[in-house]
Write a protein that binds this DNA or RNA. Structure first.
Lengths: 233, 233
DNA sequence: TTAATGATGTAACAATTATCACATGAAGTA
DNA sequence: TACTTCATGTGATAATTGTTACATCATTAA
């Protein structure tokens, strides 16, 4: 898989630091790397596999927030405060391996490693701007806009250029997409089929190929912001 | 106005740094501190007045994202990369004054001031979690959920306890609220009047008094997360 | 005081989206 | 193969939300 863009992607300093520590853990599909309420004392970097960050509601519904893979940082940076619990969960969509850093080790390192701090600040400020743009797309363009935005982000994070368009190289069910958009599964299904009918995209092997990304962008007034600000991870 | 909670609130180190530089600018109601496309070479801290962070769409609509006042940090942390332009805008809702730091000065300071870096990381990680929870509320609980969430956040940021409830000590038009919720003004109006009818809230002097915050929280499955994660600023 | 402007309130109707209830399809397993 | 399970597809209907078109109300300016 060719991963090009990422909001919380591993920077050089951080990569070095993770490599120095070099603790890893394998993770199995359909398990959770962490769930809401777990003690948040570790930060992870994905070495292989796919992890979905989300939040489950008491009413049984599930909210999709990010889809992360190699080099993405996963966890919550509640630095210098302990006994903090995870607010989100991390579900393993494809088995793989993560590098682990104890939060306390990262805290110690930050005290002496200025370059690392600065890289983390840069990473986080990107995330912040990214989320603001996501609000615009998800909240202000209706449910179809939410789906279009999600597809665009998926294509920026997991898209592979092909002769006939951009293959989103990850399998997601209609329900998964619905959880990102705040819609019913059936609505996603209908919207997707409408897009297929209009030759905007097609399916192949349970994966989406986008033929006309420009159409999706136009519908939500995409102003071609830096791609680094428009990813799903 | 008693301000208690804030996601991007001025930390001690940062406060000291701003005070050391001590450049200020006054801002007039209904002007913009910055708009989309402006060169993003400064960061601001609000000393007085109220500023709304938002984004305007080519289709003329306007998206509300944050409402900031004293001690809130405003601007975009695109550190160490120059010729970057603002993606959001900052509209002055109430005249006041801001302290200014040149981005380049902050960058220099970060190279030598570890405590400052760490404070900024803490601030940003709060913002990040806060936004994830906001997605859940705004995207996954319908338009009424979006409004309820906005009201709860407003009460956490600008609420003043009173005998009969919590006064949101800031004036916002129905349209302003609609811009935060991604709804039509008329829908906000209907929803608000419904809440008034049911004694959940009332209006006084163009300001909202929430009598039954618990009702609003229950409707969106609020799990009483740390208040610092549920503000509008 | 009157006029103008902007905010709010409301009804009728249209459009979108959710829900329910199944049918069909695809993939893995006994 | 047949069975089971999970994903997808689709119609009918309900619920929510947006749009249009005004009326009313409050505030400011002439």
């Amino acid at each position: 898989m060719s991963k090009k863009h990422s909001s919380q992607q591993m920077s050089t300093e951080l990569k070095d630091f993770f490599n120095k520590i070099n603790r890893t853990r394998t993770m199995e599909k359909d398990t959770y790397l962490f769930t809401e309420g777990d003690l948040a004392d570790e930060i992870y970097i994905i070495k292989s596999g796919v992890v979905q960050i989300g939040k489950s509601s008491p009413d049984g519904r599930s909210v999709g927030l990010r889809i992360c893979s190699r080099d993405d940082i996963v966890g919550e940076f509640s630095l210098y405060s302990h006994d903090v619990n995870y607010i989100l969960n991390a579900k393993v969509l494809e088995s793989g391996e993560v590098s682990i850093i104890k939060k306390i080790d990262l805290e110690m390192e930050l005290l002496v490693n200025k370059a690392l701090s600065i890289e983390i600040i840069q990473m986080m400020s990107n995330s912040f701007l990214q989320d603001q743009l996501k609000f615009r797309d998800l909240v202000h363009h209706g449910k179809s806009g939410a789906l279009y935005s999600t597809l665009i982000r998926l294509s920026n994070s997991y898209g592979i250029k092909q002769a006939d368009g951009i293959l989103i190289n990850i399998t997601l069910t209609n329900q998964d997409l619905a959880n990102f958009c705040g819609t019913a599964r059936e609505s996603v299904n209908r919207l997707l089929n409408e897009l297929i009918t209009n030759n905007i995209l097609s399916l192949k092997n349970r994966r989406i190929i986008i033929h006309d990304l420009q159409y999706l962008k136009k519908e939500i007034n995409c102003e071609n912001c830096p791609i680094v600000l428009c990813t799903i991870n």
